[in-house]
Design a protein around this nucleic acid. Sequence first.
DNA 1: ACTTGACCCTATAGTAACTTCAGGGTGTGC
DNA 2: GCACACCCTGAAGTTACTATAGGGTCAAGT
Lengths: 143, 143
Amino acid sequence: MKIGELAQVAQCTVETVRYYEKEGLLSAPARTMANYRSYGELHVERLRFIRNCRALDMTHAEIHRLLGLMDQPAGDCGGVNQLLDEHIAHVDVRMAELSQLKQQLRELRQRCQSEQAMDACGILQGLASMETEPRHERQTHLG
Amino acid sequence: MKIGELAQVAQCTVETVRYYEKEGLLSAPARTMANYRSYGELHVERLRFIRNCRALDMTHAEIHRLLGLMDQPAGDCGGVNQLLDEHIAHVDVRMAELSQLKQQLRELRQRCQSEQAMDACGILQGLASMETEPRHERQTHLG
DNA sequence: ACTTGACCCTATAGTAACTTCAGGGTGTGC
DNA sequence: GCACACCCTGAAGTTACTATAGGGTCAAGT
């Protein structure tokens, strides 16, 4: 199977497939005589696995860890469970951040209910007078 | 006031200030004879405004729009209100996405309650067998 | 006068996960 | 024999910074 077909079954672009190969997430396949990449069923499975992880917003680093764990079939899956727990914690952190953000934005929005003169706008006044806080370290890769 | 002092009152780094200047968010200040940047009260106000917008997770493009609107004091603030409404909508979209994500992750996590053999792990099985969905267009810049 | 240290300058590269582009080769149907 | 869809590589662009290299400035201390 050529790269276009693989991309189609995995619902991503050809460029993304090549990028995963360069990143080491997907192993380099055999080549045809025309130097075209030639994929098999195992590549399909692995790429779909990767895309499913990405759909869950895992980073490449997390997916790398996961693939490394999977490729040691002798071990148990404790590491897999732990990785998932950590990832769920990332999502929780980001949800809490956004929730607080939304509250701040709602309060700000309340300060201007109509189309005022620019220098009377409560929103602009709010943005000018907020306590400027230092940017805190991220606890999550989720933006 | 030199750049280090400005950065301190605005709770950001010197590099960030220089970056904002390059981006056109902060206007280039006068220079001392030693070629040091020399800032005044207006720069302080504008930089704090920018940092407050960033604390609310606005993009530079949004901040640019906002500064452009502010700098036309003849107009009304309808555009400001609209920008804020759009930004709040971004936050809502991302919160909904994360909420769905968390549900998916919880269901996946449920599929493995103990440290099993690798090929019996319900999480890995789940990741392998999920419906692979095409990545949808982002409705929000929030990650 | 000399040095140490804190501060300033520019320009460049790195981050994450791709996307886009430039410039070219391959293979099939008419 | 040519158009057109597909494939190739390598480099640059995206966002909002951060970090690094390599250098200049200035005030205090010896």
